[in-house]
Amino acid sequence: MARSVVVTGGFGVLGQAVSEAFAAAGDKVARIDFAAAPHSAVAGALDIGGVDLTDAAATQAALDKVAAAQGGVDVLVNVAGGFTWETLEGGSLDAWARMSSMNLMSNATITKLALPLLVASGNGRIVNIGAGAAIKAGMGMGAYAASKSGVHRLTEALSEELAGQGVTVNAVLPSIIDTPTNRADMPDADFSQWVQPAAIADVILFLASQEARAITGALIPVTRGG
């Protein structure tokens, strides 16, 4: 039976790969993104652009549209987020607030609002995008790693909060993802060691599956090329 899947940040490279994977599996996919429109289509997907996921009213309106079109929400994949590299001495304090807003508060907002729908599903799945770089932060990674560490703690706490309610909550922790932006930012790196978006999508699909029903509160590293 086709499930209703929401992918935040669904217009980006990783969100596109995740959305395509769920669609290929026969699920109904809704992509919610801050960008106005996607660069690439996903067959059959419901695209909702221009949504600030830290705005509760706008986020609720998007979820209402998804629930009406797709009959609820069974799976929520929180891909939306951002990255910055700057030292504390040379950078801006605004970066800390921006990273918290983009990576943590966006996640917490839509997850809280989607909880009634996910619980009603009976087999709800939440999959968050954490970061391997948040396990031990390197120089210039403080603001980013702090916000992603918050996603890790949210994942753990919510998994216990929802115990017994039929909803699992897990996070994948990628190393460097092979995207055009990362290649442009690190042109001298060995791209062959970077994780492919499709490989991350495969792990997310597993965590959203019935076979992964006994896994919750897990922070799963995803670090091989793929």
Rank of each mutant, 00 (worst) to 15 (best):
S121M: 08
S121R: 07
G122T: 08
G122N: 06
G122I: 00
N123V: 10
N123P: 01
G124Q: 11
G124S: 14
G124E: 08
G124C: 08
R125I: 01
R125E: 03
I126S: 05
V127P: 02
V127T: 13
N128P: 01
N128Q: 13
N128M: 12
I129L: 14
A131F: 01
G132E: 06
G132Y: 02
A133F: 06
A133C: 00
I135G: 00
I135F: 10
K136S: 05
K136G: 03
K136H: 07
A137Y: 07
A137E: 09
A137L: 09
A137W: 04
G138F: 07
M139T: 11
G140A: 07
M141R: 06
M141F: 14
A143Q: 12
A143D: 06
Y144F: 07
Y144V: 06
A145N: 09
A145K: 03
A146R: 09
A146V: 10
A146Y: 03
A146W: 10
S147W: 08
S147M: 05
K148R: 04
G150E: 10
G150Y: 08
V151I: 05
V151S: 12
H152D: 15
H152R: 10
R153Q: 15
T155Q: 11
T155C: 14
E156A: 13
E156C: 09
A157H: 06
A157V: 12
L158S: 13
S159I: 06
S159V: 08
E160V: 10
E161W: 06
E161Q: 14
L162A: 11
A163C: 11
G164A: 03
G164F: 02
G164P: 02
Q165W: 07
G166D: 04
G166E: 03
V167H: 05
V167C: 05
V167L: 05
